[in-house]
Design a protein around this nucleic acid. Sequence first.
RNA 1: GGAGAGAUGGCUGAGCGGUCGAUAGCGGCGGUCUUGAAAACCGUUGAACAGCAAUGUUCCAGGGGUUCGAAUCCCUUUCUCUCCGCCA
Length: 424
Amino acid sequence: MLQLNHIQNNKEEVLARLAIKHFDGTKIIDDIVAHDTDRKKTQAELDNTLAKLNGVSKEIGQLMAQKKSEEAEAKKKETASLKEDAKQLEEKKAHIEKVLHDLLVRVPNLPHTSVPIGRTPEENVVVREGGVEPKLTVDAKPHWELTTQYNLISFELGNKITGAGFPVYMGKGAKLQRALISFFLDKAIAAGFLEIQPPLMVNADSGYATGQLPDKDGQMYFVNEDGYYLIPTAEVPVTNIYRDVLLKEEELPVKMCAYSQCFRREAGSYGKDVRGLNRLHQFDKVEIVQLEHPDKSYATLDAMVSHVESLLNALGLKYRILRLCGGDMSFASALTFDFEVYSAAQKKWLEVSSVSNFETFQSNRMKLRYKDKNGKINLAHTLNGSALALPRIVAALLENNQTSEEGIRIPDVLRPYTGFDWIK
RNA sequence: GGAGAGAUGGCUGAGCGGUCGAUAGCGGCGGUCUUGAAAACCGUUGAACAGCAAUGUUCCAGGGGUUCGAAUCCCUUUCUCUCCGCCA
């Protein structure tokens, strides 16, 4: 959520920046400014009315203490119209605030100045590439054939038990999942992140705080009975640990990591893009989250990118890092780097991580603040990134490490976790 | 699930219809003293909104009500604790 003062003072700049995200804010920003002005005016009127009311009440109290009950009774009559005024102003203010909030919550975050102009994923800018493309034999198979051949994952069983996009992992397939989760968590912990095991369902307040609501309402699974949402990412519960928290400056940065299952409805997708592990409704992910001082958040973003990069290097995957263009960025992000790994058998890039700085967009929604050395209270910056999402990593590992004779090779760094070197 | 008790500032804990945004202790910050530190002593110390400021308004778990006036009374929701029951 953008800060009202910033919108009021920098209207033209806000509109220009929103345009980079291909969001036409002309009408909504005007609306917001008008409502905010109205809000202030109404608040002032209400304050004045209440001040008068408080004054009279105090006088009555003093008169009572002096046993001048007749005068006190006379004063009581004065309050009637003031109370009526206050009530109406109260209602007016509540209404304006609700409208204002509903407007504000629909405006995306402003993109950072370094965000490339562009509308589609093709216009994202490649920052750098790493790793080596494997040389596969001509009979190399896509992962959805390998998972069947080696009995690692059953998409059919998941379909039977639940529906499409809910695979069943078995044997070495299941063990590989656990190995990757442990490996990613251990790396994050070694990098100073505190491990968190969060709830997998959150309430609406949490959804609003990190920006999934109202923007992504309908993309999340919703539990009617209790009004809970299944989390689309651990970012939501983990960041919300600090909702309504006032930190001391020296407590920053706060570094947390979490493994969780993630649930996404992703309605409307189809075709070979969603084949096999390419897109699922339930998947595993290790997420890293940081709360940071505004002066340091972009350096921290770089450090998080480096962390993710080190994971891909350790796994020996060919990857590239993209700076997302305005049109491809998420609602809440100010700057996002995506990581893609190259799937040699599918001959395509698969997104495996998204690392973002949200600046004050989330912290403003969730009142996450810190008190600086001078006692001034400021909003903290929030950042997060996948480190990493499992399914496409598994897809790339299976495809890129397959051999015709010996089976599928497990990367060295995972072997202590899997307990086996090959899938045969 | 049954019975009872409770929720107050960073923490502990008073206040139970009027001048209470709230006594006190601890903690924090500043100072005196000290070569330095501790102790002692003095001062200071919640948040939001509007305003250049003075100041005003709001907040004593959340929501609603009674009253001229609510931290204090009533209703309600949530949560916590104690005892009993059940349970991976």
